[in-house]
Simulated scan of single mutants.
Amino acid sequence: MSPILHGVIPAVPTPLSADGQPDTAKLVAFIGDLFDAGCHGVNLLGTTGEATSFDRATRLQVMEAVAVAGFAPRMMVGTGATALADAVALTGAADVMGYAGALLLPPFYYTNIGDQALAQYVEKLADLASIKDTRLYLYNIPQLTGLQYSLDVVERLTRNLGGLLAGIKDSSGDLPYAEAIAANFSALAVFPSDEATLRDASQKKFAGCISASVNVFPHLACSTYQSGARTPADVYGVMVNVRKVLTNAPLVPAVKAALAWRRGDESWATMKQPLLPLNLEQRAQLHSGLANVQID
């Protein structure tokens, strides 16, 4: 099967054309820039990528464009969906296209289904997708999905899926939860969503991070991951301050607005409905905050 991913993995935004459709050429170029900056992988079509706002056909088109560019073996792609058939189709396609990992949101409409139903959903998906090489990663983001991959669910899936289940992306912000997963399931790669955890990643047995804010200044996170506890305080402080600036506004629009500013390309700020771009006041505060952080 595909190698288990690790390290600094930006959750890449999806650039859009004027009609709201993904600009795959711009996306592929940006993914190349992230790898050139030292990132170890890229997470395509996650929350930052606005995946749940695209239909299945559009998601498959984006996946295909990135795979054709040759990046899939170093990437994970979001394949979760509320309808099992959609999740199966997307996960199976990820395997055929050669993606290293498929990132699974839980079925996020019926929020009171319980652990047994959630575990059975993932097991059924794995069975129907007939995966050969792509590994599965659970996506824990209960503040948006209303569901959590509890330790009991993770234990059952680890036991029943074996090496097919490679890890978990934890975007809950609950660090003790991520630490408990890492401590109890040593075979799983655990990725918190905040690059501030990279300095202590080795001590806490984290595999790295999968973060939206890393897109803006990826070299800071890559340097911290490499240096770990030896990361200079000034480098670590700048990285943390950049994330604070971005999270002072709605994070996904903030990341896209920051990229529009950094790359001199206003189209990066375009959002897919229902999300809205930052307003003028928010953007001014964002630009001021980033300009005041001594990056280089």
Rank of each mutant, 00 (worst) to 15 (best):
L45E: 01
A126N: 04
Q226V: 08
Q294W: 12
K256T: 08
A178W: 13
V28F: 14
Y236G: 07
V240Y: 08
L259A: 07
V252M: 15
P22L: 15
A207E: 03
D200Y: 09
T158H: 04
V255E: 05
A201L: 02
N248W: 10
D23K: 12
V66R: 08
G173E: 10
G173S: 14
Y139F: 13
L105G: 02
G32F: 10
A129F: 09
A269G: 10
R243I: 06
G78E: 01
N241P: 00
M63D: 05
R243K: 12
M63S: 07
N279T: 14
F185A: 04
V252R: 11
S211L: 11
D194V: 08
L157W: 02
L276R: 15
A69N: 08
G78L: 06
H6V: 05
L278W: 13
T231P: 01
V28A: 07
L16M: 15
E266G: 07
G78A: 00
K256C: 10
K132C: 07
T158A: 09
D19M: 11
A180E: 06
L147T: 08
T247H: 09
E179T: 14
E155M: 03
N43K: 14
Y225I: 10
A126I: 07
T247C: 12
T24Y: 12
D234E: 08
Q226M: 01
G92N: 04
A69G: 08
D127V: 11
D152T: 10
V96A: 08
A65H: 12
A196M: 04
F30Q: 06
L16H: 11
T145K: 07
W268S: 02
T58I: 15
T82I: 02
D200H: 09
P107C: 01
G114K: 13
D95L: 09
Q61S: 14
L104N: 01
A166M: 06
G114F: 15
L84E: 01
N140L: 09
W261C: 00
E195D: 00
L147C: 06
I210S: 02
Q203P: 00
L138H: 06
N184I: 00
M239R: 07
A89W: 07
S2Q: 04
D19Q: 11
D174Y: 15
T52S: 15
V242K: 00
P142K: 14
A65E: 08
S193R: 06
L138Q: 03
N292V: 10
A37R: 13
I131A: 03
L276D: 05
K244W: 01
F54E: 06
N292L: 09
K244Q: 02
T197A: 11
S53L: 15
V8Q: 11
R199Q: 02
Q21A: 15
G46Y: 13
G228K: 02
F54I: 12
D23A: 14
P73E: 03
T14Q: 11
T145Q: 12
L251S: 05
E155K: 09
T48C: 10
F206M: 05
E266V: 13
A212Y: 01
A221S: 11
P218H: 12
A11R: 04
T52L: 15
A57N: 14
S202A: 04
L259F: 05
Y149Q: 05
P106C: 09
L118P: 03
N241I: 01
A93L: 06
V240Q: 03
M76L: 01
V238I: 04
D265M: 13
L165K: 05
A291H: 14
N248L: 10
A233N: 11
N160E: 06
L138E: 03
G7S: 11
P232S: 10
R283C: 13
